[in-house]
């Protein structure tokens, strides 16, 4: 068997291994991925509008942000949390690193699998969102391809971020670093508000542009939010969004695979 075929077979087998392990903890995966976003959606999209602390369309304005956040975070955790175990004291990943495929491919497999988790988690938000928001659920249907594209791109951003974090953070710093990275990421990512609405706090509006989640949420909003009163919702320019996310993926992929190599070889 040629080296390349052997490497591809190893890659597929490692992917299958991840499917098997995740399949076994399916319930845990869904709880981990969905509990927080669904509560956010329920409180901000259903409860606050119902008690008139938020406008009635807050639900469908927020839904795209929740889809983006869920996809990004699930993909990120799918890679980084697993890497903490894999690269931890027992080095469970050694078996896969000794397999006949380039070390970099083992990192790429992590990204691909993390992205799959992100795609599944964000896709599940749609039916659950419909259930939670009821009549407040509205997603435009003329941009399905764009929605799919944004789901894939968001999951890739999350998975690459996960590889970078999972390889840079030392196991004993995991919980601190997650708080320090995760919380700002969550709240500066335009998840709960459209970017254009930040006009009045200009410095914060500019700050959000350094968070890739902003572009994911804005792109998702462009693809999902139907016109309100005949007017399209103002979002970041879609070309800018694609370029920003493309650059984010490229940079993180390069840094993440290098950092992965450094962690596994000495």
């Amino acid at each position: 068997m040629s080296r390349i075929r052997l490497a591809i077979r190893a890659f597929v087998a490692i992917f299958r291994r991840d499917l098997t392990v995740t399949g076994r903890e399916f319930v845990r995966f869904f709880l981990q991925a969905l509990v927080q976003p669904l509560f956010f959606l329920f409180i901000f999209g259903k409860v606050l509008p119902s008690i008139r602390l938020a406008s009635a369309n807050f639900g469908f304005l927020m839904l795209p942000g929740i889809v983006a956040l869920t996809g990004l975070v699930s993909a990120m955790q799918g890679v980084s949390l697993h890497l903490v175990v894999d690269l931890g004291y027992a080095r469970e990943i050694d078996d896969r690193l000794l397999s006949p495929l380039p070390i970099r491919w083992v990192g790429l497999e992590k990204i691909l699998f993390g992205a799959l988790r992100g795609v599944v988690a964000s896709s599940v938000i749609f039916p659950l969102g419909r259930l939670i928001l009821g009549s407040g659920y509205a997603v435009r249907t003329d941009r399905i391809a764009e929605i799919i594209g944004m789901i894939l791109l968001t999951a890739l951003v999350g998975a690459n971020l996960g590889l970078l974090m999972g390889t840079v953070i030392k196991p004993d710093q995991v919980s601190l670093m997650f708080t320090l990275i995760f919380t700002p990421l969550l709240f500066t990512g335009c998840t709960y508000y459209p970017w254009s609405s930040l006009d009045r706090i200009r410095w914060f509006q500019v700050a959000t542009l350094f968070n890739p989640l902003t572009y994911c949420a804005e792109g998702m909003r462009h693809a999902m939010v139907p016109p309100i009163g005949g007017r399209e919702l103002a979002t970041l320019n879609t070309t800018d969004i694609r370029v920003a996310l493309g650059v984010s993926v490229a940079v993180m992929l390069s840094l993440g695979t290098r950092s992965f190599r450094r962690r596994v070889l000495s």
Binding site: L6, A13, T20, S99
Partner: peptide
């Protein structure tokens, strides 16, 4: 690999090597 059963440890290892 603590995510797997004993037999899977072997069968997956075999699969990694084609």
């Amino acid at each position: 690999d603590r995510g797997l059963t004993v037999r899977e440890v072997l069968t997956f290892h075999g699969a990694y090597f084609g």
